[in-house]
Amino acid sequence: MERWELVDAVQRMQDYINDNINSPITLSQLAKAAGYSQWHCARIFKELIGKTPFEYIRALRLSKAALLLRDNQIKVIDVAFDFVFDSHEGFTRAFIKQFGVSPKRYSDSPEPIQLFMPYRIRDYYLTLHKGEMKMSEKKATSTVFVQVVERPARKLILKRGIKATHYFEYCEEVGCDIWGMLCSIKEAMYEPVGMWLPDNMIKPGTSKYVQGVEIPQDYAGKIPEGFEIIELPPCKMMVFQGEPYDDEKFEEAIEDLWEVMKKYNPQIYGFDWADDEAPRFQLAPEGYRGYIEARPVRELNK
């Protein structure tokens, strides 16, 4: 149980950092949030996260600053002060060191960069040690919202794995930092997703599960190194959205929705599955909105 106490302490530090990212943060404040000494907090944070608290804070601030510069007409100096940098020069040096481009150049011409998009440490350890923590019993019933949406002809920037059939295998093969690069693509039509490709979109020797982001057909921007771009035809997607859930129970939320999808008969509503026409995709699990997954469908009368 001691290990989980440390995980929870680091999670409290992560939560404190997220809530106060635009204010000065001291090790004393993090220690108070975690309930341990400053020395112990610094040690367990580095052990579990792989960065010191201040390396983590700086990388997170720079990534959030990059998104502001990408999406808004805003002065570099204003962004620097918003994220607690003392000067334009200090912010510029840190930004170049993190992303290899100056903030002014990035603001003028945003290209994909490797943003720092950390996972909640407690979610990560719950996944590694599934079943060790006592979970509350599942609800007898749950509500799933279902709708059909149109996807236009578009392109997909993706990174393939080798043999991965799901997210965790993909992380082992490719790494868990792909999301940051995908989130930095300004022209994205929707948020990044994990995808199960139809057989006709899988290259020999590559994985069924990939991560990517959809972009307009006329996209002329940079393709990040190691990624590729493919065409996606117009299609219909049946979107399933579960109830909001506690973040730490994301695996249960996914499994619950999969059970619903497994038994769901789209023919009742005039559709059939069309898994050969488009990738099935999942959005990043976010407890406040419920787990969301979509599967391609076609109308039965067509």
Rank of each mutant, 00 (worst) to 15 (best):
A274F: 11
K32R: 15
K130R: 12
R280P: 00
G212M: 05
L283R: 09
T141L: 12
G205Q: 09
A31W: 03
G205Y: 10
P234F: 01
K208G: 02
G90Q: 10
Q282E: 14
R289L: 11
A80T: 01
S184E: 04
E255W: 13
Q114H: 13
R58I: 04
C235L: 07
A220D: 13
Y170D: 00
E225N: 08
F83T: 00
R120S: 12
I121D: 07
R160P: 02
I292R: 03
D78H: 06
A253M: 05
E259Q: 06
K51E: 13
P198K: 06
P53Q: 11
I21M: 07
A274C: 11
Y16A: 13
V148G: 02
G221T: 05
W4A: 04
S37L: 10
A34N: 03
I268D: 10
E191N: 10
S107Q: 15
D218S: 14
F227E: 00
V149C: 06
R151I: 07
Y219K: 08
L257N: 01
T92L: 06
V260H: 09
F281P: 00
V149N: 02
I21F: 03
R151T: 08
I25F: 01
I74W: 06
M237L: 15
S107M: 11
P110Q: 09
I77N: 10
Y124H: 12
K302T: 11
L67Y: 05
Q114G: 03
E286D: 15
S107C: 04
G161D: 01
Q267A: 14
S136K: 03
V7H: 03
R12Q: 12
R160G: 02
